[in-house]
Design a protein around this nucleic acid. Sequence first.
DNA 1: TTGCAGGGGTCAA
DNA 2: TTGACCCCTGCA
Length: 330
Amino acid sequence: MNITVKEYFTDEGLPCVDITGCDEFVPAHIFECGQCFRWNRVPDTENTYVGIASGRVLAVSACVKNGENVITLANTDEALFRGFWKDYFDLERDYAEIQKELSRKDGYLGAAVGYGRGIRILKQEPFETLISFIISANNNIPRIKGCIEKLCAAYGKRICAEDAFVSYIARISGADKSSVCGEYHAFPSPEELSAATKHDISACCRAGYRCEYIEKTSRAYKDSPMDTCKIKTASADDARKMLRAYTGVGPKVADCVLLFSGLRTDVFPVDVWVRRVLEKLYFKRKVTAAEAGAFVSGHFGELAGYAQQYLFYGMREDPSVFDSMSGQSN
DNA sequence: TTGCAGGGGTCAA
DNA sequence: TTGACCCCTGCA
């Protein structure tokens, strides 16, 4: 990937970088495809999102300038971009090539890829991803986001945005500066979160039976963190086993953590949405999660994780993208 | 206002 | 393989 980075300051004095040479980057698709919970669209903007990752706040937008796609990252300089955000957004990977390969595999994927162009799989912090997807079990996105925000507010480090950042957000959204939030919280570290009991966690974020999972997993993680090197080199099944050693992690959550923290791309989280896609497109009948999992690992191989994201996003956002495709899988 | 079903699973029997 | 688990939301 040959990306070009231009560093500058906005009128407010906020450090920014403009990235060109990366056509596969659509903020709405990246942040609303179900992989992350701490990125939110700035009200009254079409394509600008603010999020927190590893204790850093960033505003992301994309537009076309002079016929060229430009990604603007605000509140970072070039050094921080190269040292952190470039990897977080997986900007080294050639998604156009992945899309080509998936489209060749099967007609349904071709349709899904066409719809979800611009999705990128983020490399999120493993502990945050682990706890977030434990909370996601049998839960819906607004509530998951609410639980996570409350946990962060209670146990995470406070981050005060610079005045220039608040002014920038106010300007691009047309909002009054006083209405723009300037306070954020990092996701708590294993040490911070493991200090809380399940009762504390329950009082804080009302996550029900998942609170016990959060307590146990935070404490276990503090003593025995994920061995990401081992996870990357092990077989997919062994990697899943390592994740499932944490309480509250079953097959679906394990695959989500592996995929969305950028550790593996050959896993395929099967939840009710994905199962619906597979049943509708490939099986034409009801299947179990295990049956679905066995099918996809053979059918999609190393690119299973990307296939999952495109299929899932297409099915959830607009199931009609598959309507003209019946009978075209191979 | 109330009651009920269902939600992007996991655990234990 | 099945039921219980906590809590919220939408709907009748």
